[in-house]
């Protein structure tokens, strides 16, 4: 079972600035102390539209070109992998797909595509009010994010916000935009205040969206940024930790359907989760040797 622990940063764009590589950004994030990272692939809406038209006319060959791209693969050397392990447990690296959406009619393709299933998280960035309404009410996504340049002014009411939060969708505030430009800063603060005033800052997650390693901030600094977003200290911290976990779990339930427990065979566990199988075996042994435990009790009694 893929659970997430520690601080989360679910928005590291796969296309970073030309001076650095994605690997640098990821390593920097790990060094800052993030426990879970999601690499974000953003696709424009035309990917969804053009495929639809061309498949009708020609066939599979064209479709492959315009298909939703597969998540980027990262290969780390052994040293880097070791450095990941220094900070407690292994760092979880997830893959996230973000769709820029302006017209709500184009979402069918997203659901049908096979490649979508290879992503762990699915996010949507509505650029028009109509798209926002659709995303909030009907779309099966994990995160609704906000882009200060592309998005027009969106207004929503409490009912719509609750529709999303009831279904477990989280609203993301990307903070790296705030470091770049004054107008973007104002827009992001404005949007987050809207979340605060309308939805009481429920289901908020803070992501970075950093395209260079220097734009990343340490998790505790990010939690302090929460003051600007109208979050309390506790809310800001849970926006980085607990909310990240809920998003990851929501992503799993999207694939499996609603469930309360998850069963898997002990032979097929990940190497990091082998200890669970060991524990279970030990526990069984202990249960079988019941007399031993009684003796222990006797001993205690006699001593007392």
């Amino acid at each position: 079972m893929n659970t997430v622990q520690g601080f989360c940063d679910f928005n590291i764009p796969s296309i970073c600035s030309p001076t650095t590589t994605l690997r640098d950004v990821v390593i920097r994030a790990v060094k800052l102390g993030y426990g879970a990272i999601a690499i974000n692939t953003t696709i424009e809406e035309d990917v969804l539209i053009t495929t639809k038209k061309k498949t009708n006319k020609k066939g599979d060959a064209v479709e492959d070109k315009k298909e939703i791209p597969l998540p980027p693969k990262l290969n780390f050397t052994q040293e880097e992998l070791d450095s990941f392990k220094v900070h407690g447990k292994n760092v979880k690296i997830l893959h996230r797909l973000t769709v820029m959406l302006s017209d709500p009619t184009n979402t069918q393709k997203l659901v049908q595509s096979v490649n979508t299933k290879s992503y762990d998280l699915i996010a949507v960035c509505p650029t028009t009010p109509a798209a926002f309404m659709h995303a909030v009410a009907n779309m099966d996504v994990d995160i609704i994010t906000y882009h200060p340049m592309e998005t027009k002014e969106i207004r929503f009411n409490r009912r719509q916000y609750h529709q999303a939060t009831d279904r477990g969708i989280f609203f993301e505030i990307p903070y790296a935009f705030m470091l770049r430009d004054s107008t973007m800063r104002k827009k992001i603060i404005h949007m987050s205040h809207q979340y605060h005033s309308i939805g009481k800052s429920r289901n908020i997650i803070i992501g970075s969206g950093a395209i260079t390693p220097l734009e990343l901030r340490a998790p505790y600094d990010v939690a302090n940024l929460g003051l600007l977003f109208g979050l309390t200290e506790g809310e800001a911290r849970s926006a980085l930790t607990l909310s990240g976990r809920s998003v990851a779990l929501h992503a799993v339930t999207r694939k499996t359907g609603k469930c309360v427990s998850f069963i898997s065979e002990t032979d097929k566990l990940d190497p990091e989760e082998r200890w669970k199988a060991q524990e279970i075996a030990d526990a069984e042994e202990r249960l079988l040797g019941k007399p031993e435990s009684k003796k222990m009790k006797m001993d205690i009694d006699t001593v007392s």
Binding site: S182, R185, K186, K187, I188, I189, H190, H193, Q194, S197, L228
Partner: peptide, 11 residues
């Protein structure tokens, strides 16, 4: 500052 301007813009 920018924070103030952004904060009061809502509504």
């Amino acid at each position: 500052g920018e924070f103030g301007a952004a904060a009061i813009r809502n509504g």
